[in-house]
Design a protein around this nucleic acid. Structure first.
Lengths: 124, 124
DNA sequence: CAGATGTGTCAGGAATCTTTGACAGGTGTC
DNA sequence: GACACCTGTCAAAGATTCCTGACACATCTG
């Protein structure tokens, strides 16, 4: 059996995972996809939300590495994007958090923070 | 050794934990408190944020059951609120999420949602 | 060609979260 | 009394997130 993370997650990695999972819809999406993988439109109908919205949620989940999407072309030539859950596994304890907190590149630094914003502005 | 959660967390419980941990400051707060418990004002100075802000973050963390605060009165008669991390331990895997997602009382229900809001309005 | 399906994106408003500064206590010391 | 420290709360600004209704583009079917 292949090794899943389980080691020492990055601060930013954990941060993305937490904010991704900290939403009712996204939790339900993971649940729905675990039961059976399927494509965006069908999934939107299944959980009763709009496609643009689901699209956004899926992006967030994928960015966090919790689901993966593959664009497949059916026999009828129609392209549909299938999503399925990734086999993640995190151990959630105070020590893990403390460890990860040390490597967070977000708010809190007076210098790096401003540098990030500048870089983000120039990147556009 | 006493048993920490580790069983099957409620949807709402996990939801609070995730959104609590999905923030750089709160992650750092847990880290700082794990290293050594201390009181609000001192902690605010240590991590370099305002007291009102820290106060809000601590409330969120406490509501999620990740930290606990105790109002203690020192020998000099001054009251200060000490916080420390709670010994939580969650296993973060697709199945756990799916399980929890079934018991989420938030967005997604067309009836329960409205009922909740009404109750919240009347409760004030 | 019209209509159904699928994909994605974009703009804007609504709702929430984050942050700050000011205030109102409390106690002990000079 | 004036000042230091502690506690808490509040309102209003700022920044994010969430959500919806278009829109544009593909393919197959009637």
């Amino acid at each position: 059996m292949p090794e899943v993370p389980a080691a020492a997650p990055t601060g930013d990695e954990l941060l993305k995972v937490f904010s991704a999972l900290g939403n009712p819809h996204r939790m339900r999406i993971v649940a729905a996809l675990l039961e059976s993988r399927n494509y965006v439109s069908a999934l939107a109908r299944e959980i009763g939300i709009g496609r643009p919205l689901l699209h956004m949620h899926l992006q967030r989940l994928e960015a966090a590495g919790l689901v993966v999407g593959t664009l497949e072309v059916g026999e009828d030539g129609k392209a549909m994007k299938y999503y399925e859950v990734a086999p993640f596994c995190y151990e959630l304890t105070p020590r893990v958090i403390a460890r990860a907190a040390a490597t967070v590149t977000g708010t809190g630094d007076r210098d790096a923070d401003r540098a990030d914003r500048t870089a983000k502005e120039e990147a556009k």
